[in-house]
Every structure is written in structure tokens, then in C-alpha cells.
């Protein structure tokens, strides 16, 4: 790895101050499982002068119950998210999503915050510098999106215009279905945004001097049922080809409320609002489920090589709903 300076931050304020003193030439490291890959392959033209360790900030690693639900610090390891009994019980789709990430060793290192903030996995974007040079593209600020004419088997099937890379984070999909809110702290103070507002087509809304400092998840309504399904070619290691998280409240056999969120289909997590609307107020049966899946994918515009993702996503939606309704 090319050289950088390493600095340990002991508090959020200090981390922010450190970023500022480095004028955008510094980056944060949490578990490092994503960042070190980015740095080793030198995929970006800019290389940081300093890496700021935030694992040493004590107040960012916790799972706490409060009146509104659960507060999870962004430095919480994915393994701890998976193992936490309350998350397993009341926020099962998050627990399942975290368990579906990568491999056991990575989950021992990777943090929830890092999972949300990780960089895209588009294979053009990630092409290593040392086998002929990195590939530039729209997302890197130079040239067109390479995936449009290239091999886009894993790219977006909806919601993309300039960059067709999909949101790689599994936990983001579950947290969106759980209606999580993120707390962001920067030199300008603290702001709270919903999970879906956090993601943008080219990444997230974090300003260079901002950190993710908390993840607040409200309790799902009483009786709500959850599901998280992820489709990959292989169980471990793989990023999602498609995923679905859903939180659905049923009352007397009728769907009262629904949040269905799709992963790996678009640059951001996608709430399938049409699908949600199509099932609310209805009793669950095969036809309703079928309609919901069709509604969710009605706006899909697959690229040359990824129409299969539309089919798979439909199937995942159906299976998620079926598992909840049964």
C-alpha cells in the first residue's frame, strides 16, 4: 500500500477537526475492509495523505435500547449486530442482512457505519491501478459511464441516469425497511436524515467533514413481520445481485402497513412504494403477491445484460411476502 499518515481520533470532535486540518486529503477508517481495498488498488486518482482511525472513539460502538427503539453506534461490528438478541428478535431483517454480508472474518472486522458508507463495487470503478491503470468514469469525474456499453450484468435496473452502479450495502436495505434514521455530525453540527435521504446516485450526502454518528431504528409496529432475502451466485463472500427487505404489519389477515425495499437494483436502496400500495388493505393471496412483484418492477429498465435481475427481484419480492403471509 502507498504511504499515508495514520492518526487516531479519540472523539467525534477531534475526528472532524482532523479532517478539516487535512483539507480533504484525509479519510476515515473504521473496520477498513472496504477502505483498504480502495487504497491498495489505488482506484481513485486522489490518494489520502492521512487516514484517521475512528475505532478509538468510545461513544460510537454501542447498541442501546431507548424509548423510540434502538440506537446503534456506527462502529458496532457486524458480528455484534448479528449476535445481538434484541436485534434478532425485534429487528430480524437487520440481523439477517448483517449475517448475509461477506464472510465471518469480515463481519468480525467490518462496522455497521462502514457498511453504509462503503464505496461502490462497480467493476469498472474498482479496476486496479496496477494492471494497466485505473479506469476513469463518470463517478470518478472523468469520462462516460463504462457500464452503459460494457458488461453491466451486475448494474442497475432502475433509477440510474449517469452512474449505473448499485448500492452495495446489505444492511442499508434492511435499515431502510425498518425506517431507520441516521445521525450525522460535522463541523456545522448535528443533523438527522432518514436512511433513504442518506443515499444519493453517486454515494451519500456526507460532506467531507461529516461522520455518521448514530443509527436510530424505531420499533416496528406490534405484530410486524420481517424478511430479508439476498440473491447471490454463492452464499458467502458475494455482494447481492438483488435483495429485498420487508416489514409488514398484518391485522386479521389484512395488510395494514408495508415497507418493501429493494437492494442492488439501483444506485440507492429503492422503496417499492407501488408494491407497498398494492398490498395495503388486502388479504394476502397469490394474486396479490404476484401483483405486488409486478408493480415493484413496472418501472424497471434493464440494461443490455441484466434483465435477469428483474426476474430475480420479482421472485425475491414474492418469496419475502409469502414468508411473511404464511
Amino acid at each position: 500500500m502507498k504511504a499515508f499518515k495514520h492518526i487516531t481520533a479519540n472523539s467525534v470532535e477531534e475526528a472532524i477537526a482532523l479532517i478539516r486540518t487535512h483539507n480533504g486529503k484525509a479519510c476515515l477508517i473504521a473496520g477498513g475492509t472496504d477502505l483498504l481495498g480502495v487504497l491498495k488498488d489505488e482506484i481513485l486518482p486522489d490518494y489520502p495523505a492521512a487516514v484517521i482511525n475512528i475505532k478509538t472513539i468510545p461513544e460510537l460502538d454501542h447498541i442501546k435500547k431507548n424509548n423510540d427503539g434502538l440506537k446503534i453506534g456506527p462502529l458496532t461490528k457486524l458480528a455484534d449486530v448479528v449476535a445481538h438478541p434484541l436485534i434478532k428478535k425485534r429487528f430480524s431483517c437487520l440481523s439477517q442482512a448483517a449475517a448475509a454480508v461477506a464472510t465471518p472474518e469480515i463481519r468480525n472486522m467490518a462496522t455497521l457505519g462502514g457498511n453504509l458508507c462503503q464505496d461502490t463495487r462497480c467493476w469498472y470503478y474498482r479496476y486496479p491501478q496496477h494492471v494497466g491503470g485505473r479506469i476513469m468514469c463518470h463517478r470518478k469525474g472523468k469520462g462516460p459511464c463504462q457500464a452503459v456499453k460494457g458488461d453491466n450484468r451486475y448494474h442497475a435496473i432502475m433509477g440510474a441516469k449517469v452512474c449505473f452502479a448499485v448500492c452495495p450495502s446489505d444492511t442499508a436495505i434492511a435499515l431502510s425497511a425498518l425506517d431507520a434514521e441516521l445521525e450525522i455530525t460535522g463541523s456545522q453540527g448535528v443533523r438527522n436524515v432518514s436512511l433513504n435521504e442518506f443515499f444519493t446516485t453517486l454515494g451519500n450526502i456526507l460532506k467531507p467533514d461529516e461522520l455518521l454518528t448514530n443509527i436510530q431504528i424505531p420499533y416496528p409496529p406490534k405484530g410486524a413481520k420481517q424478511a430479508f432475502l439476498k440473491f447471490t451466485l454463492r452464499k458467502p463472500v458475494d455482494f447481492a445481485i438483488a435483495s429485498v427487505a420487508s416489514v409488514i404489519t398484518m391485522q386479521d389477515g389484512i395488510c395494514k402497513a408495508a415497507r418493501i425495499v429493494l437492494g442492488a437494483v439501483a444506485p440507492t436502496p429503492v422503496r417499492a412504494t407501488d408494491a407497498e400500495a398494492s398490498i395495503i388493505g388486502k388479504a394476502a393471496d397469490g394474486v396479490v403477491i404476484e401483483e405486488a412483484a409486478e408493480a415493484a418492477m413496472a418501472g424497471a429498465k434493464p440494461m443490455r445484460m441484466n434483465a435477469y435481475k428483474v426476474e430475480i427481484t420479482k421472485t425475491l419480492i414474492k418469496r419475502a411476502l409469502l414468508s411473511i403471509f404464511q
Binding site: H6, G32, K55, P104, E105
Partner: peptide, 18 residues
Amino acid sequence: TVLLDGIPILSCMTLTVE
């Protein structure tokens, strides 16, 4: 893979200074 305080982690994705 090595054990860090007893937990298996990937030493290629870990900075020694940490």
C-alpha cells in the same frame, strides 16, 4: 487469518498501527 484478542480476523485488511 490470525486471532486478534481471540477473534479471527484478516491480517491483510488490518493496519498494524491499529
